[in-house]
């Protein structure tokens, strides 16, 4: 395998991904990611110099519309989906002392 993924990389990526991996999962992730990156490296066989990266198939950009409220007040229905709610708000652990 050409791409060797270090413990530090897995640690860093799991911070970005907001995932907590077990030791076993980390080892697996190192192997999987290395193997996938080897495969992704095939793209380097293509000469893409001067080719613009294509994010959208069609030349569409900046689609604007007036920001008007179209739906009704669904606060209670939305809060019904929350794991925890209090006083008409989403409840989360204290973040500010």
């Amino acid at each position: 395998m050409a791409n060797i993924i270090s413990d530090e990389t897995i640690e860093y990526v799991s911070i970005l991904a907001k995932l907590e991996l077990s030791e076993k999962e980390k080892e697996q992730a190192k192997r999987d990611m290395g193997r996938m990156l080897d495969y992704f490296d095939k793209l380097n066989e293509l000469n893409t110099e001067g080719i613009e990266p294509m994010s959208h198939i069609f030349p569409v950009s900046n689609v604007f519309r007036e920001d008007e409220v179209e739906n009704g007040d669904q606060r209670d229905e939305m809060l019904a989906n929350a794991p925890k709610a209090k006083d008409g708000s989403f409840q989360v652990p204290r973040t500010v002392e």
Partner: peptide, 21 residues
């Protein structure tokens, strides 16, 4: 995990932009 990696600083051009090209 894979997506976070290819978008991370230092790899964005090599993987993500390359794929878009």
């Amino acid at each position: 995990m894979l997506g976070s990696f290819v978008l991370s600083s230092g790899y964005y051009d090599a993987y993500y932009l390359k794929a878009l090209r």
